[in-house]
Computed example of a mutant assay.
Amino acid sequence: WEYLAGDPRIGYLPKDMRKLIFAWTRREFKNLQRAIKYAVRVPEPIIFRNNVLVMEFIGDELPAPRLKDVEKNLEKRDFEELYSYLIGVIERLWKRGDMVHGDLSEYNVLLWDGPVVIDWSQATVRRNRMSLELLKRDLRNVTNYFARKGVDVEDYEVKFRELVER
């Protein structure tokens, strides 16, 4: 409810839990479309109805692995490239897309012919009163994870100030 309440795109929030979940599904569908518009690789949304969202399957017979599940097979340069890509995603969404993912971490990045960012249900626009908090959380999560992998990272608070002061 908290994520939806602050999103100006939602408008009236239904009291009925079923309708609230339908609004959540519609929101994730639109977030995926918006991310694609700003050149973020995500599962392509196909259709939604009520509480069901159909999107592109990422993988072959099995789902693509999460970054968290394959990190032991990666080298430092892989982590450096992924860090650069994800910071670029955060910047692009914030500066050009007026949007923030809100839960970006090693658990929400699939590796399949490059990184694919998943789980867009909590993503929101900059006008949401929670957007600054979510932006800082994304930067902190990404920076801390890659620092633990030996990547030379920028201080997330410095990056945060750089993004919000522009």
Rank of each mutant, 00 (worst) to 15 (best):
K19A: 14
K19I: 01
L20Q: 09
L20H: 01
L20E: 02
L20K: 13
I21T: 06
F22H: 15
F22M: 04
F22E: 15
F22S: 07
A23R: 14
A23K: 15
W24E: 06
T25C: 13
T25G: 05
R26S: 12
R26G: 02
R26P: 01
R27A: 09
R27F: 09
E28D: 05
E28Y: 02
K30I: 02
K30T: 02
N31W: 03
L32P: 07
L32G: 04
Q33T: 03
Q33K: 15
R34H: 14
R34M: 07
I36E: 13
Y38T: 03
Y38P: 03
A39D: 14
V40D: 06
P43D: 07
E44P: 00
E44L: 10
P45M: 01
I46W: 08
F48Q: 00
N50P: 00
N50V: 00
V52A: 10
V52F: 11
L53T: 03
M55P: 03
F57G: 00
F57H: 06
F57N: 01
I58H: 01
G59L: 04
L62N: 08
P63R: 09
A64Q: 03
P65M: 08
R66V: 06
K68E: 15
K68W: 11
V70T: 12
E71A: 14
E71G: 09
N73E: 15
E75Y: 13
E75S: 14
K76E: 12
R77Q: 13
R77V: 13
D78S: 12
F79H: 15
E80Q: 15
E80W: 10
E80R: 12
E80A: 13
E81L: 11
L82H: 08
Y83S: 09
S84P: 00
S84N: 13
Y85D: 11
Y85W: 14
L86C: 11
L86M: 14
I87P: 07
I87A: 04
G88N: 11
V89P: 02
V89C: 08
I90Y: 05
E91V: 12
R92E: 12
W94D: 06
R96D: 15
R96S: 12
G97Q: 09
D98A: 09
D98Y: 12
G102F: 05
D103S: 14
L104K: 09
E106Q: 15
N108E: 06
N108F: 07
W112V: 02
D113N: 15
D113A: 04
G114D: 04
G114H: 05
V116P: 02
V117I: 12
I118Q: 02
D119I: 07
D119W: 04
D119P: 09
D119K: 05
W120E: 07
Q122T: 13
T124A: 09
V125Y: 07
R126N: 05
R126E: 01
N128K: 01
N128A: 13
R129N: 09
M130G: 00
M130L: 14
S131Y: 03
L134F: 12
L135C: 00
R137Q: 01
D138R: 08
L139G: 08
L139I: 04
